[in-house]
Design a protein around this nucleic acid. Structure first.
Ligand SMILES: [Mn+2]
Ligand SMILES: [Mn+2]
Ligand SMILES: [Zn+2]
Ligand SMILES: [Zn+2]
Lengths: 144, 144
DNA sequence: GCATAAAATGCAATTGAGTTGCAATTGGCT
DNA sequence: AGCCAATTGCAACTCAATTGCATTTTATGC
């Protein structure tokens, strides 16, 4: 049984070809992906709607999380639990990075969103922090 | 000459009914607005495309700035220069706040986005910080 | 292995945000 | 008033995402 199938089983999700393939892609790719990007990476083609519903199901079951995207389209990344094992509950409060050169968005799982002081009366819940700039690869290429 | 018309003149933008009305709305409302919200607030109705082009023109001329929105639709707010007068150049690096109760998004012009330490090799440019929670009004109502 | 019920999928149609080309209108000038 | 460039309105289009419904597939118990 594949790694992806294993993960699905643990979450009590039915193991279907679409789910296994999509989850495989998420685990393999390090970056945050859009619907269209996943569609291109899929060998077999499933209906677009199936992919949308697969993403919704993964989201609801905590297998992936939403990643901020300025262009207005949905972007998702695999929930990497390795980075949070000590705390038990998995948190999604890490910073995300968008590379203006290669357009890849990555989870900076180790960089937590800093707390800030809000004006009197405001009550803080979650927050979203997206940093734009050059990723490691692209800043290296530029330096050469 | 209205306040809005004055602002347009200073920016060397042609003073048209559409622009005056839209800019009026931005100045009057404190919150960040979407295309659809502005359309509802307009008394006279202009073509949707005109409104899109008005927003683009305001954006290019620094009258408004983009505001992060999790739902994926464009949101804009008036550039409040009062808060940055000392520095001369206007910066857009303030934190934005989304109220989960009333769904209003506001600029926290005084709260600047904190600097963070990125992993080795990453080069930082702009960033986006959206805090979710309860606004002053809604947290007060809840307390009663 | 096979029947069964529930869950997942495919397909067609629809919504909603945003864009583009082009002809008609209007605003800022002299 | 009259000119020209900028702005507007309209129609058509793209692209992401959603919904209803009929069909297929999965997990489970026999
Ligand atoms: Mn996560
Ligand atoms: Mn601003
Ligand atoms: Zn890059
Ligand atoms: Zn509120």
């Amino acid at each position: 049984m594949s790694n992806a199938a294993e993960v699905l089983k643990n979450k009590k999700l039915r193991i279907t070809p679409a789910r296994v393939h999509v989850l495989d892609i998420f685990i393999r790719e390090a970056a945050a992906l859009t619907h269209a990007e996943i569609e291109k990476l899929l060998i077999d083609d499933f209906d677009r709607v199936t992919l949308y519903r697969t993403l919704t199901s993964f989201l609801e079951n905590g297998l992936i999380h939403k990643v901020p995207d300025e262009s207005g389209i949905q972007r998702f990344a695999y929930c990497n639990h390795e980075h949070h094992e000590h705390s038990g509950a998995h948190s999604h409060t890490h910073v995300h990075f968008f590379c203006m050169q290669c357009s890849k968005t990555t989870c900076l799982d180790d960089i937590l969103i800093p707390a800030i002081k809000l004006p009197e009366g405001f009550v803080q819940d979650e927050s979203v922090f997206l940093v734009k700039g050059l990723c490691r690869k692209c800043s290296k290429n530029k330096a050469e």
